[in-house]
Nucleic acid binder design. Structure first.
Lengths: 119, 119
DNA sequence: TTCATATGTGACAATACAGTCACCTATTAA
DNA sequence: TTAATAGGTGACTGTATTGTCACATATGAA
């Protein structure tokens, strides 16, 4: 009876962030940016299996989600990783109390797998 | 020439987790589970805009991603939230050093928005 | 056993998304 | 100015995903 029946998705506040992270190519882009800022062309060169437009579209999705911040310098565009949305996403379900044990479990796991702390 | 040309996605290790979190309904399910374990029927009752099968399919995706752990008790299935994959996902891009400032920025943001720590 | 409740599953339709094409603008060097 | 490089965009197609149906299994109560 109400006309709001075709509402396709609830879409919470961090929707852009989650959708951006759903694609493995975009995650790989963030992996590259973790090492430092990159220009768009540098990123394109790192993904030869995809066209330039494909990479740029992914960058736009990441930028819309504020996961990537950009700064123009002449005709170059430097892409930076922004960790704040990642933190917000994480804290949505993990309170600072639970944080303790989740972090502990992971550190234990890492310790077991690495079995040494060199490097 | 090689027959491995149709590989559709890179798909890193946490792929299931990211894909599971991409859907707002699944995130809403996790929101409910943050308050404590729920049976499948309880969750179905909380989402009247979707069929039972829809909810169960989402639960299966979450379970495959280890974001939800289940325990059977008679004919009830209790669904629990598991925060470990969330932590892994977060730590992929945020080292423990960066963790400092990202967390600080967020706490600052919360402080500004709440403007009181009363609660 | 019989019935009701809670859960599990294969096949299907509508929609959303990833990736591509061709074409365009802006900055730098000669 | 001309040429080369870096970046930007609308429209299209194949595939993946979401949400639905009907049907099936398992546990608990009467």
């Amino acid at each position: 009876m109400d006309d709001a029946k075709q509402q396709p998705k609830p879409a919470d506040s961090l929707d852009d962030v989650f959708r951006a992270l759903a694609d493995p190519t975009r995650r790989a882009l963030l992996d590259e940016l973790k090492g430092g800022a990159r220009t768009t062309s540098q990123l394109v060169a790192l993904f030869p299996e995809m066209t330039r437009f494909g990479v740029m579209k992914h960058l736009k999705v990441l930028e819309d989600a504020s996961l990537v911040l950009t700064r123009k310098e002449g005709r170059l565009r430097w892409n930076h990783l922004n960790a704040v949305p990642l933190r917000q996403m994480y804290e949505r379900w993990v309170s600072q109390y639970e944080d303790q044990w989740a972090g502990s479990l992971l550190r234990l796991k890492d310790k077991i797998e690495q079995n040494s702390q060199g490097e």
